[in-house]
Amino acid sequence: MASSTVSTQVQLVNRPVGWPTAADFRTVTVDLPDLAPGQVRVANEFVSVDPYMRGRMNDVKSYVPPFALGETMTGGAVGRVVASASDALAVGDVVTHAYGWRDLVQEDAAGFQAVPEIPGVPLSAYLGVLGMTALTAYVGLLEIAGLKEGDTVFVSGAAGAVGSMVGQIARLKGAKRVIGSAGSAEKVALLTGKYGFDAAFNYKDGSVRDQLAAAAPDGIDVYFDNVGGDHLEAALASFKDGGRAAMCGAISLYNSTDAPAGPNNLSNIVTRGLTLRGFTVGNFWDRLPAFSAEMAGWLASGEIVFDETVVDGVENTVDAFLGLMRGENTGKMVVRTGDLVPAL
Score class of each variant (00 low, 15 high):
residue 179 I to E: 12
residue 209 R to G: 09
residue 56 R to N: 03
residue 56 R to T: 02
residue 261 A to D: 11
residue 93 D to T: 03
residue 292 S to G: 09
residue 39 Q to I: 00
residue 5 T to N: 13
residue 150 G to F: 08
residue 229 G to C: 01
residue 108 D to H: 13
residue 119 P to V: 01
residue 284 F to E: 13
residue 298 W to H: 15
residue 256 S to E: 15
residue 186 E to R: 15
residue 107 E to A: 11
residue 120 G to F: 02
residue 320 A to R: 09
residue 164 S to G: 11
residue 298 W to E: 14
residue 84 S to A: 12
residue 147 L to V: 07
residue 207 S to T: 14
residue 281 V to K: 05
residue 222 V to D: 04
residue 200 A to P: 12
residue 225 D to K: 04
residue 142 L to C: 03
residue 173 K to W: 11
residue 257 T to G: 00
residue 159 A to F: 03
residue 162 V to S: 01
residue 197 F to I: 02
residue 157 G to M: 09
residue 311 V to M: 01
residue 122 P to N: 02
residue 58 N to P: 01
residue 235 A to T: 06
residue 333 M to G: 10
residue 333 M to Y: 10
residue 190 L to A: 12
residue 150 G to M: 03
residue 32 L to C: 05
residue 257 T to W: 00
residue 319 D to T: 08
residue 193 G to I: 12
residue 90 A to L: 05
residue 79 G to W: 00
residue 21 T to M: 03
residue 173 K to H: 15
residue 203 Y to M: 12
residue 262 G to W: 03
residue 300 A to H: 09
residue 151 D to W: 09
residue 316 N to V: 10
residue 315 E to H: 14
residue 278 G to F: 02
residue 158 A to W: 06
residue 329 N to A: 13
residue 154 F to H: 09
residue 168 Q to Y: 04
residue 155 V to P: 02
residue 129 V to T: 13
residue 95 V to D: 00
residue 241 D to Q: 11
residue 344 L to E: 15
residue 183 G to N: 01
residue 73 M to V: 03
residue 328 E to A: 15
residue 239 F to P: 08
residue 235 A to G: 05
residue 47 V to H: 06
residue 231 H to G: 04
residue 99 Y to G: 14
residue 318 V to C: 04
residue 283 N to L: 10
residue 184 S to R: 12
residue 164 S to C: 07
residue 107 E to H: 14
residue 238 S to G: 13
residue 90 A to I: 07
residue 44 N to C: 04
residue 230 D to N: 09
residue 312 D to I: 03
residue 263 P to C: 06
residue 75 G to P: 09
residue 86 S to L: 11
residue 183 G to L: 01
residue 102 R to H: 03
residue 159 A to Q: 00
residue 52 Y to H: 13
residue 200 A to S: 13
residue 96 T to E: 08
residue 219 G to R: 04
residue 253 L to F: 07
residue 201 F to K: 11
residue 112 F to L: 11
residue 192 T to Q: 11
residue 244 R to H: 09
residue 168 Q to D: 11
residue 316 N to I: 09
residue 198 D to A: 09
residue 143 E to G: 04
residue 31 D to V: 12
residue 42 V to H: 01
residue 118 I to V: 13
residue 331 G to W: 08
residue 334 V to Q: 04
residue 256 S to G: 13
residue 276 L to K: 10
residue 124 S to K: 04
residue 255 N to Y: 08
residue 241 D to S: 14
residue 82 V to S: 10
residue 83 A to W: 01
residue 266 L to E: 10
residue 241 D to I: 14
residue 293 A to V: 04
residue 145 A to I: 13
residue 148 K to F: 05
residue 84 S to H: 08
residue 174 G to W: 00
residue 338 G to H: 12
residue 213 A to V: 00
residue 204 K to D: 02
residue 134 A to P: 00
residue 241 D to A: 09
residue 78 V to P: 08
residue 98 A to E: 14
residue 244 R to L: 03
residue 99 Y to K: 14
residue 120 G to S: 02
residue 65 P to K: 08
residue 100 G to K: 01
residue 310 V to A: 07
residue 153 V to M: 00
residue 146 G to K: 14
residue 222 V to F: 04
residue 238 S to L: 12
residue 219 G to M: 04
residue 37 P to F: 11
residue 141 L to C: 07
residue 340 L to M: 14
residue 79 G to R: 01
